[in-house]
Design a protein around this nucleic acid. Structure first.
Lengths: 242, 242
DNA sequence: CGAGGGTTTGAAGTGCATCAAATAGTGTGG
DNA sequence: CCACACTATTTGATGCACTTCAAACCCTCG
């Protein structure tokens, strides 16, 4: 594939992102021209916490874990993010330092774009600033929710809550959910050990009559599940405030 | 005090807030005119989670707890915020619904301002939008840190981390710290029970040789404290990224 | 078929929560 | 200035949830 074609692809992907809907073609063209596609192997680290930030990233394919890590290697997962999501852009507001690390958790294709370009555009395009502002507010709110869950919900309830979230994203009444990534990764996303995840899922199955077969979870009675999980949450199902 | 004088006071306070430094006098005057001062008793609830939002708030004096609460009354504290801080403004980005509850934890004086006015100004004043954006990014980052602490640090380490934060805000080498609010409230802010706080503080005292007398904590050896707490954190002392 | 990662299970330990009760601290009215 | 009432904090005893370490199992893919 020649450069011309590549850039067209990037331009298309960028142009479709929600976050850039208020940007004009000139900016998008320039951004696309200065962007690069990167192929990441599973496990490859893209950002190291507190690194100087020069670029931000868009996931074209795959899965990226955002996390913070202590010297001895213990990790706290902040988010696991997928196709068409952007990350690394918040460093603009942190002295151009990345506030988290990022690692591909499966083979992924990433578009990397220069940060200064975005920064300038935010400063010059008020509409983009507003879009970024509400996107940031949404992120903040999600983290607040997560903090609440960690404080109030037990392991099984947190799993139930995640299942409900996934079920809701799909069709209205879908009862068959396939886990978006492997169980150990889900566990870390929910702030628990893989062993705990396994046992807590078993408990959840017993309590709410869900069916588990490998990577597929079948929920016959969504209200039973929501009752079990949402009793320990400030928001009622289906979580309006997201 | 007549209305004129009151408004002048409000105007002064608003005008000094960091967040409004990029706003012109006309806006600040209008905002002050449409604002009201409220006296809150300790324990009084100002915002109930998911209420329709009409106003945002500025603390002129006192202390306000922002939290989320389940039906059975269990709380998750999001933040405890003091003089010259603003809260309730994020509802602009959540369909005018407050994403948390707010309660005065001591007798407080609050300035309440109409949200639509702020919303319009954000939309029309790009510089304010940028200020709001970095303030929101900072909040998000703080919550990310908190989530990390809950995941990785134990109770004693979290207390130590808080002490370091307070020590750092004051003078460079201050060794005498007075707790900003009562211990049960600190405990809830750190996501633990009062009993746990008491025991964990005792343990911290033993491990790091700090002195505790009522509400005053004396730290002779800050590096010993930071070593104890920051070993379980992705940021090294003194936490640069704040 | 066998290697290797992902997942589950078991056994034991740790940290925090819970409930109950004692103690310290604070403000009030006499 | 003291005694009382009330709140904040500490202490003790016990239980539960989650972690840790070790080993078994399971699945997929060369």
């Amino acid at each position: 594939m020649d450069t011309q074609t590549k850039n067209t692809n990037i331009r298309d992907i960028i142009g479709r992102l929600d976050i850039f809907q208020e940007c004009n073609a000139t900016f998008l063209d320039t951004l696309a021209q200065q962007s690069k596609t990167q192929h990441l192997k599973k496990g490859q680290v893209l950002i190291v916490h507190e690194d100087k930030a020069k670029r931000f990233y868009i996931i074209s394919k795959g899965l990226v874990k955002l996390y913070r890590e202590t010297l001895n290697g213990t990790q706290a997962v902040i988010d696991i993010t997928a196709k068409n999501n952007i990350f690394g852009e918040t460093s603009i507001f942190h002295n151009n330092t990345h506030p988290y690390s990022a690692e591909a958790t499966e083979n992924s294709i990433i578009i990397s774009c220069p940060l200064p370009l975005l920064k300038t555009e935010i400063e010059n395009n008020p509409k983009l600033a507003i879009v970024m502002l509400s996107s940031m507010a949404k992120l903040k709110h999600e983290t607040d929710q997560e903090l609440e869950h960690r404080t109030i919900q037990n392991a099984s309830q947190r799993i139930g809550c995640l299942l409900l979230k996934i079920a809701n994203q799909n069709s209205k009444k879908s009862t068959s959910i396939s886990l978006p990534y492997d169980k150990a990764l889900i566990a870390s996303r929910l702030g628990m050990q893989p062993e705990t995840f396994s046992r807590a899922l078993k408990k959840l199955k017993k309590e709410t009559k869900i069916e588990i077969k490998g990577t597929t979870v079948t929920v016959d009675n969504i209200s039973q599940l929501s009752q079990y999980s949402c009793i320990a949450c400030s928001s009622e199902f289906p979580c309006k405030d997201l």
